[in-house]
Amino acid sequence: MLVQVRRYPTINPLLSEIADFERQVAKVFDSFLSGEAQVSRSYAPPMDIVENDNETLVVTALSGMSKDDVKISVENDILTISGTRKENQLPEKARWVRNEIRTGQFTRSIRLPKGTDSGKISAEMNDGLLKIVLPKAEEVKPREIRVQ
């Protein structure tokens, strides 16, 4: 029986840009791994990006993982979130009835928005959501200029 997963349309043309970028990153990794049998499954956890005047918030849905299962790195203005979600363990004498949850390795990358204060990036993980705050440097924050 098919399981219905609702797909919501993305609201921003950034989507294709991010997807292209991730493909390029994946290609680089693949070239390193070629020749090696890749048996592990991989998937892309969904991501939201929210911006306000002071910061950009990157939210990634990573249920089933603790903060020790996730790695965040910034290199050359590229923020990369990676990790491995372990499969749910089947106890002894048990059998699967359904198996819908995707597990395995994942990597998601975004280019840091211009003007990110990369020294002040912070992250927290709660209830399966990873929230990374990218603060904006003072000079890129919008300012109101009063007419004298």
């Binding site: 919501y8 993305t10 921003n12 989507l15 991010i18 939201d48 990006i49 950009t56």
Partner: peptide, 13 residues
């Protein structure tokens, strides 16, 4: 987590 005065730039969740 999309507060007032915030814009959702990218939405997959």
């Amino acid at each position: 987590y999309v507060r007032e005065n915030a814009t959702l730039l990218f939405n997959e969740i």
